[in-house]
Amino acid sequence: MVLREYMARMDGQDPEKALELLEPDFRFLIALPGAQRSGTSRADFAEYIAGRAAVDRTHEIKRYSVDGDVETVYGFVVEKGVTTGAFLSAVLVSPAGLMARYQSFFTTDFDLVDRA
């Protein structure tokens, strides 16, 4: 599951390793409270990664599914042991097994499932 690997790399010491999982013409939308980031290339996503604050952050996946070339995950973002919110993310996987498109929604005030 490429989406799980992507999140593990984003949580690791070198998030730029996540770029290895993206198609060159990768398209993305990341919706955050009060803002969103989007782009149409691996280079755009590299710029997004470079602008992220370096914190002790993990994506704790609670649910995942695969349906053909679409993968989805639901979980919680945890920073320094504190849950900061929940996310629902989906990816379109290319025939090469890379991420072609990515969409993620993050909220700080609603949980679809319980964390426990």
Rank of each mutant, 00 (worst) to 15 (best):
R57N: 06
F87Q: 04
V93I: 14
R37I: 10
L88D: 03
S89V: 00
K80T: 00
A90H: 05
G51T: 07
A100K: 13
T108Y: 05
K80A: 02
L22I: 08
L19S: 14
T84G: 02
D67K: 10
V55Q: 10
Y6E: 12
F110D: 11
F106A: 04
K17M: 06
G75P: 00
S65N: 11
G51N: 12
V73L: 13
A31S: 13
P33G: 03
D109S: 09
A116S: 09
S89Y: 03
Y74H: 12
A96V: 04
T72F: 00
L112T: 02
V2S: 01
A53I: 07
S89P: 00
F105T: 15
T108C: 04
G81T: 00
Q36M: 10
Q103P: 00
G12P: 08
M7Q: 13
P33Y: 08
E60A: 10
R115P: 06
R52Y: 02
K17A: 03
R52V: 08
Q13S: 13
F28M: 08
Q36V: 10
Y74N: 01
A53S: 12
G68W: 13
R63V: 14
G97W: 03
E79K: 09
G39F: 01
E23D: 13
L22V: 08
Y102L: 14
A31K: 10
T83W: 03
T72Q: 08
R101P: 01
R9I: 04
D11S: 07
I49C: 00
F26M: 08
